[in-house]
């Protein structure tokens, strides 16, 4: 799979031929120096940007050929995203942020609340469900965003440096939680990280450099 970005009139080749298979329930760590294309790869994988050439298949779905609306329906049901900067909506409470993902899926209001609370329970934040993001610590905000990614029970969760803004103690807690979810719910995780310590529970560790896979290690 290739990905180019237009820079002025020139096309610069960012992903220069990535070929990768991931099995259901795997825990994949994506490492590499800054600018090597990790985020770009993750975004193409999640259908947020289209690849320039090549195919992405998730089960029987050909992501690379879906229209924007098809992608949106697909994301709703099969994908969850976790970002380095949490990306919560600042005007909404923790509970509302989590429930929002269900709104677009057309879930009824009472059920939305019930399931949002369930998801917050999983990340241990029920007591903070009425708080706005600005009233929560970084680790707590990230846990809200994990709850939001979980609430639809997607098969795949894509996380781009989920602990990048957190101190090492909190980072360890968040990673613990992610591993637990992976074990308990058999969800597939692809996690971009630059901390080699966090890869010990992963089933696959991929090193990227200059838009190519440098090494792929199965553990």
């Amino acid at each position: 799979m290739h990905k180019d970005f237009k820079l002025g009139k020139e096309d610069i080749n960012i992903l220069k031929g990535i070929n990768l298979d991931i099995e259901q329930g795997e825990m994949v760590a994506l490492l590499g120096p800054s600018g090597s294309g990790k985020s770009t790869f993750l975004n193409v994988l999640g259908g947020l940007v289209p690849p320039t050439s090549g195919d992405i298949m998730i089960r029987d779905y050909r992501i690379s050929e879906m229209t924007e609306n098809e992608l949106c329906l697909f994301r709703r049901e099969h994908l969850g995203f976790i970002f380095q900067s949490y990306n919560l909506i600042s005007t909404m409470t923790a509970m509302e942020n989590v429930a929002l993902a269900l709104t677009f899926a057309g879930v009824k209001k009472e059920i939305r609340k019930e399931r949002a609370i369930e998801a917050l329970e999983v990340v241990g934040l029920v007591d903070r469900m009425g708080h706005k993001p600005s009233e929560l610590s970084g680790g707590q905000q990230q846990r809200v965003s994990i709850a939001r990614a979980l609430v639809n029970h997607p098969e795949i969760i894509l996380a781009d440096e989920p602990t990048g803004n957190l101190d090492s103690k909190t980072s360890a807690d968040i990673m613990e939680m992610i591993y637990r979810l992976n074990r308990e719910e058999n969800q597939t995780f692809v996690i971009v990280t630059h901390d080699p310590d966090t890869t010990k529970y992963c089933t696959k560790v991929i090193h990227m450099r200059d838009g190519l896979i440098e090494s792929e290690v199965n553990q």
């Binding site: 949106c72 329906l73 994301r75 990306n87 929002l100 677009f104 899926a105």
Partner: peptide
Amino acid sequence: TKEIGIMKVIGASISD
């Protein structure tokens, strides 16, 4: 804009 982006990522369609 950021809010709209977040909503789209978590599954809001164009018409939503």
